[in-house]
Design a protein around this nucleic acid. Structure first.
Length: 554
RNA sequence: UGGGGUAUAGCCAAGUUGGUAAGGCAGCGGGUUUUGAUCCCGCCAUUCGUAGGUUCGAGUCCUGCUACCCCAGCCA
């Protein structure tokens, strides 16, 4: 119990340990480089925890750098949301946030250097022509007819590109590497394209924008990044990354290492699909609590610590993986089990009338906020003649495994008395509308003197003092473990991923703050939704309690 | 034989001079319990994709094979 948590160990940290031990580096510098074209999701959280976590543990630095080389798809709203999410996750980047666009002048200079060295040329082939000459996975490509243009001519053409004299798609700057390379990305990759687009950082200064492969490595070098961490699909690109660094005049030689991206069961973690969910209105925005976005999961009630813990538990490797939701859920349950105050809430109410309880009497009972943490104190709960209990907690008859209220049987009302069901009222459909009961006044805070045992314990609220509330019950967004593998992933959206219930909560919940978290005993962990008001209480169910009974069934 | 990667339990994942398979999640038994929660105790890989080889000894070394992922955007 008193053991100190072992420091995370993974292949990247081992590389860093080696680099530090060998003297290759005396300090560590990482970066988190999101493209501001969408919201951050759990996959980014993994990268954030990795990069910022390493910086923290090695007393190094981690920059936040927006990889903003494609103004067509990026905008300032995304950069603001991303900054907010990183901060909320509990991380602080070194200095001011950076932008790849901060280096556009330097990048242009390095492109000129490559041209002067005869290592880059302006190609007037159309995108289709470039593709046609690129070859295939098994056949080498062919040289572009513009490949042997002299540096002087190329310099002039590149100058004109920058000046806006060439139309979009009419030409591009390509690195001259090897059209026969087995690495497709080395077959004279385009490093600059013409794009007459307004940029959120540089405005209309540029009409040519550098490509990712050219930009990322140089940005890393400029910032003095020692270990540039990215996902597996960039493994081939590492050859180009190294080629650029080796062929331009820059001292720093950052190294790229790749780890596998996160996959979570029953959800999708690709921006393209997430955007589709939002645009096609399958969810109510980026922060819909069913979304695996940082914003969504935050609104759902997850804490920064629980997400960091999750990232620690899943580890960092190069193996393709598909993590079970239970892994994530265990993290938030662990935290909320110790931190969340207990409350009572009835999600699907049915009325109980206690026949032997005085008509207008209201008792205010002290109830512990936590079963084992006395330091969390107590709050007052109201007890009266009419109560609400959970509809599923009552049956007219049941087998012995049913540990709740049954006609002619007794249960313990949580934090209160023994209650026995005597009779019921039903409507025309045979639905029970009211349960008439009697309570044992000598069972508050103690067991009956005669040794009677209760069948079980159920939660309740006083019908006269309780506050109405809306409960948002979330379930997995998809019915398939790997929706991305489906022909049409939107086709397997879970129709009951959101179920809204209208019930009641104990009076103490009347005033609660946005995102305040509670355990509603026996029903789950909930947090106050941002749209909740004292007049209209709304609670989001973060996660259910572990429920072995549900698995056994009856 | 295009190239680049990865294979350890249902899931994630340790295992780094070869020395006799960590841990977490899930699951299964039992105990405690005024939450069918928590907590506690116990169980859960004679075996590391597969076939061989080297060795006193192999998840770790060698060889062959198989499976899966990534690469042919002027996206990142």
């Amino acid at each position: 119990m008193a053991e100190t948590a072992p420091r995370p160990s993974n292949f990247i940290r081992q590389i860093i340990d080696k680099d530090l031990a060998s003297g290759l580096h005396s300090s560590v510098a990482t970066r988190f480089p999101p493209e501001p074209n969408g919201y951050l999701h759990m996959g980014h959280a993994k990268s954030i925890c990795l990069n910022f976590g390493i910086a923290q543990d090695y007393q190094g630095t981690c920059n936040l750098r927006f990889d903003d080389t494609n103004p067509d798809k990026e905008n300032i709203d995304y950069v603001n949301a991303i900054k907010q999410d990183v901060k909320w996750l509990g991380f602080e980047w070194a200095g001011k946030e950076r932008y790849s666009s901060d280096y556009f002048d330097a990048l242009y200079g390095y492109a000129v250097e490559l041209i002067e060295k005869g290592l880059a040329y302006v190609d007037f082939s159309s995108p289709d022509e470039v593709r046609a000459l690129r070859g295939t996975l098994t056949e080498p490509g062919q040289n572009s007819p513009y490949r042997d243009t002299t540096p002087e001519e190329n310099l002039a053409h590149f100058e004109k590109m920058k000046a806006g004299e060439y139309k979009e798609g009419s030409c591009s700057l390509r690195a001259k590497i090897d059209m026969a390379s087995a690495f497709m990305c080395m077959r004279d990759p385009v490093i600059y394209r013409v794009k007459f687009a307004h940029h959120h950082q540089t405005g209309d200064k540029w009409c040519i924008y550098p490509m990712y492969d050219f930009t990322h490595c140089i940005s890393d070098a400029i910032e003095g990044i020692t270990h540039s961490l990215c996902t597996l699909e960039f493994q081939d690109n590492r050859r180009l990354y190294d080629w650029v660094i080796e062929n331009i005049s820059i001292e720093c030689t950052p190294r790229q290492y790749e780890f596998s991206r996160l996959n979570l069961e029953y959800t999708v973690l690709s921006k393209r699909r997430l955007i589709q969910l939002v645009e096609d209105k399958h969810v109510n925005g980026w922060d819909d609590p069913r979304m695996p976005t940082i914003a969504g999961i935050r609104r759902r009630g997850y804490t920064p610590a629980s997400i960091q813990e999750f990232c620690k538990r899943i580890g960092v490797t190069k193996m393709d993986n598909m993590v079970e939701m239970s892994m994530l859920e265990a993290c938030i349950r662990d935290e909320l089990n110790t931190d969340a105050p207990r409350r009572m809430a009835v999600l699907d109410p049915i009325k109980v009338v206690i026949e032997n309880y005085p008509e207008d009497k209201v008792e205010w009972i002290d109830a512990a906020n936590h079963p084992s943490e006395e330091g969390m104190g107590t709050r007052k709960i109201a007890f009266s003649k009419t109560l609400w209990i959970e509809r599923e907690d009552f049956r007219e008859q049941a087998n012995k495994k049913f540990k709740r209220l049954v006609l002619d049987k007794e249960v313990r009302l949580r934090n209160a008395y023994f209650l026995k069901a005597n009779s019921v009222d039903k409507d025309q459909n045979g639905e029970v509308t009211t349960i008439y009961c009697t309570y044992d006044p000598d069972t508050l805070g103690k067991d009956p003197a005669d040794g009677r045992k209760a069948k079980g314990v159920i939660h309740w609220v006083s019908a006269t003092e309780a506050k109405p509330a809306q409960f948002m019950l979330y379930d997995r967004l998809f019915t398939e473990a790997n929706p991305a593998a489906q022909e049409d992933f939107a086709g397997c959206i879970n129709a009951s991923s959101l179920v809204v219930k209208h019930g009641f909560v104990e009076p103490a919940l009347a005033q609660s703050e946005n995102l305040e978290r509670f355990q509603f005993e026996r029903t789950g962990y909930f947090c106050v939704d941002e749209e909740s008001t004292p007049d209209k209480l709304i609670f989001n169910r973060t996660v259910e309690l572990r429920d072995t009974w549900a698995k056994i069934g009856d």
